[in-house]
Design a protein around this nucleic acid. Structure first.
Lengths: 139, 139
DNA sequence: CCAACTGTATCACTGCTATAATACAGTTGC
DNA sequence: GCAACTGTATTATAGCAGTGATACAGTTGG
């Protein structure tokens, strides 16, 4: 069963796209694999605190892209292979990296400084990712 | 008078936010300076091919942030100082770099590979920026 | 003075996102 | 068989973004 514990709703972008990206990133990371079961629309909507219709919209998009197979009245399983995963990876990397690089270039920032800023952002993200684990350590 | 020739509408995000970011990036790049005049709402909306109300929404936000001063019945001038510029730069860099880095980390991509991907994206952006100049060279 | 500009405000309308409440048909397990 | 789940579809409602049209008040330059 696919987990959504790391999901946090924040962006200004549509929720169904956030759900979509979360799943795709999980696929690229190898956390979500071929044949993995998606929680039911109702369960997932309760987990994420959003409307079932919003979850359904994300699922329909996934299905249209051939990444999810939904059996009416039954489960919903991920449908993945190496080629699809590679395509998603390229899609997401291009989207994320190129967007950031274009923004930095538009600000007149040079390549060397940009790389330094990105490396610094990496440290920040690393610190923020490991910080929450302190709670688990207390348990 | 502030130029908007490099502006291209593409994102899925609201247009008034795109206009806002375009101006802020110009400020950070030093292309837009203190006292610079913004084209009138009507002229700018015609330039960008959007509704005057959309431009007005971006301008009101700029004004609320103390970056623009609009004289009713007259011009609209940028109101900048070193401190504001530094704040904008930090705001945008954090927003852009951290967003990309978080996405890459969520995909399970390591630091070394991430930096390589970003450097590759830089080359791509560089090529796309210089390509349009071919048209100018023809003139 | 006055015409032409400026910023500002309002109204109606469309489209998309999201919520809410249902309803229906297929699958599963006891 | 039947209750409890599953995916799917429909309707209504609300808010925000964006467009289009219009109106009003202040500024500017000839």
């Amino acid at each position: 069963m696919i987990s959504f514990e790391g999901f946090v709703q924040e962006d200004g972008s549509p929720i169904y796209l956030q759900i979509l990206r979360y799943i795709k990133r999980g696929v690229v990371a190898g956390v979500i694999r071929d044949g993995d079961e998606l929680p039911s629309r109702r369960v997932l909507s309760a987990l994420l605190g959003v409307n079932p219709n919003t979850v359904q919209k994300a699922c329909r998009t996934l299905e249209e892209e051939g990444l999810l197979c939904s059996f009416a009245g039954s489960k919903s399983l991920m449908q993945l292979d190496e080629e699809k995963i590679r395509a998603i990876r390229t899609e997401l990397v291009t989207e994320d990296a190129l967007t950031a690089v274009r923004a930095l270039r538009q600000m007149g920032i040079g390549k060397a400084e940009a790389m330094a800023l990105l490396e610094q952002a990496w440290q920040t993200a690393e610190a923020q990712d490991s910080a929450p684990h302190a709670k688990e350590a207390e348990q």
